[in-house]
């Protein structure tokens, strides 16, 4: 059992969730309530990581973050280390490929709030920020939590992108999914089995929580 890999995976998932939580609320709410030109294009772009093969996305991120790219150069100049094959690079990649998981459920959660309730909030004297806190989030939170749970689980299991952008550096970029692959390559099926079982347990509980919350969001607004 590679505890370092599990700890690294949890840390990566934690950072991803922490960064995507405000993004999911603000951007999900924006897409739910605002109508603008090109909204369909934006929504399609957000969904893109869902349909792209992870290795393809990973390849482009590797090229974009690489030492020869402007972004990679700038990072190197600013922080004196390279972005690819580092934990920071993994977090950025993880945030990007989790966008659809973080935004879609939150957007659905906000969309389920009747327009009249938001109007009632403003007629009650609530500023937009206060209405978000007192009315919208309490009604949309199952959607937001679902988004975060999916993001967390998805990050734990991601393989292709992590391998492309991060490689397999122990303690830096070797996540539990990579570690399972390494163990199998080394014919250590026992370790691979244990780690796989841990991931199964986490995934099953994730789905359970998600379903329970979706049921709840339906019940609340009926």
């Amino acid at each position: 059992m590679d505890w370092t890999a599990l700890e690294l995976s949890l840390r990566l998932a934690g950072w991803t969730v922490a960064i995507l939580l405000p993004v999911s609320i603000l951007f999900g709410r924006f897409l739910a309530f605002r109508q603008f030109r090109g909204k369909a294009v934006v929504e399609a772009l957000v969904m893109l990581p869902l349909v792209l093969p992870p290795t393809v996305l990973g390849f482009y991120l590797l090229v974009t973050f690489g030492r020869n790219s402007p972004i990679g150069q700038l990072w190197q100049d600013l922080f004196g280390s390279q972005l690819v094959f580092s934990f920071t690079g993994l977090v950025i990649a993880s945030v990007i490929f989790n966008l659809p998981f973080a935004i879609q459920p939150a957007q659905r959660g906000f969309q389920a709030i009747p327009a009249e309730l938001r109007e009632a909030a403003s007629c009650c004297g609530m500023s937009p920020l206060r209405a978000l806190w007192k009315v919208e989030l309490p009604l949309a939170w199952p959607g937001v939590v679902t988004a975060m749970v999916l993001t967390f689980a998805h990050t734990l299991g991601e393989f292709g992108i992590v391998l492309m952008v991060g490689g397999s550096i122990p303690g830096e970029t070797r996540t539990i999914a990579i570690s399972i692959y390494d163990r199998v390559q080394a014919f250590d099926t026992d370790s691979a089995a244990i780690m796989s079982a841990v991931l199964v347990a986490i995934s099953v509980s994730t789905i359970a929580v998600t379903f329970a919350l979706s049921a709840r969001i339906g019940k609340r607004l009926s």
Partner: peptide, 26 residues
């Protein structure tokens, strides 16, 4: 929210997650 207006909606638009008293206090 800057107008001092009290509006009773046709379908009331009560906040479903709040009690009657909390709706009033809102």
């Amino acid at each position: 929210h800057r107008r001092r207006v009290g509006l009773v909606f046709q379908n009331y638009a009560l906040f479903p997650h709040m009690s009657a008293a909390q709706n009033v206090m809102a």
